[in-house]
Amino acid sequence: MINLQDIRDTARDMLAKGEVRAVIGYRRGSRGMLAEPAFITDPAQADELVWDPTCFHNLSLYLVEDRKFLAHLRKTANAPIAIVAKGCDARSIVVLMQEHYFKREDVYIIGVSCEGSGVVDERKLAPRLNGIQATNAAFDGDDFVFTTAEGEKRIPACEVMADRCLECRNPFPKEHNLAFGEDKTGRKLAEPFAALTRFEAQGAGQRWDSWSRHFDRCIRCFACRSVCPMCYCDECVVDSITFPVTAETTADEKANRIKWIERSATRSENITYLMTRAMHLAGRCTDCGECERACPVNVPIRMLNNKMEREAREKFGFEPGASIGGPSLVATFLDTDPGDFIR
């Protein structure tokens, strides 16, 4: 069990000593019980930090934002930045470092282990609370405890936990400077890829029936991309509107942009976008589940990424975010890669 005070003390201490220029963590939000990302620079704010089952955001996104902002200001950081990271978040940070987005010494990782638990899935929780507003959520052993106007409500964690947490085998942030909580690597609350396996058991026709409905629903708001720490590209290949024009952009580069898809949110274009994104996340997505959570129209995006993750693991023995010096999935190969699909 993690003692929240330890996280707060660490943050306060490091800020006070000037060892880090900011701490990215979670604080209680304005929306009921939910936590929200917090960017703390003042030691006095350290006591605002929280750690509870609603800390679902992958904060590594803000490391990306931070770097982009510094680049925009043409500044270099004078001290590292500290970040509170769960198992999946820490793996994202590893991938970002693998891709040289920042250096190891630029980031101070305060790891938090999800231990035998995980974060809550609001969609699972809502019916259980029956419309009652909760003001606080807390871990308690195998349960989540919610404080509501009608008193405390205790629910077995597994019943309202996010699928990805149930399936997660690596709840401990292996890459860290300091870690809180027990290392329960290898725990198994549910079979990995369980939801995916269920879905895949259907025939191609049925799969298309569901996916075509999902693709039709997508409004191409790009929330999934915006919330994804791996989608840090300045220009997304399938969305040329984000094209960065900098001092060194040549006329040639401006003229030679490829319009792979149209901007209209029609099915074919949505598919091409979402499939491209899944391909781009293959071997990089660490299953933080944020894209799916952010989607306003419930497109089960995680399943696409999950599919790639499973292929990578089963066919290529690949684990995303395993180590900073590790290989990247699509830039490497093994002699044993399957080739029986090739004629």
């Binding site: 891709e99 300045d234 220009e235 060194e248 699509v330």
Partner: peptide, 23 residues
């Protein structure tokens, strides 16, 4: 390289069979 689009991720460096790219 289209420098304005390159983020320096190094995946091309890893993929190149001829060790022809560096960051």
């Amino acid at each position: 390289v289209r420098r304005s689009h390159c983020t320096g991720c190094g995946m091309c460096v890893e993929a190149c069979p001829f060790i022809a790219i560096r960051l």
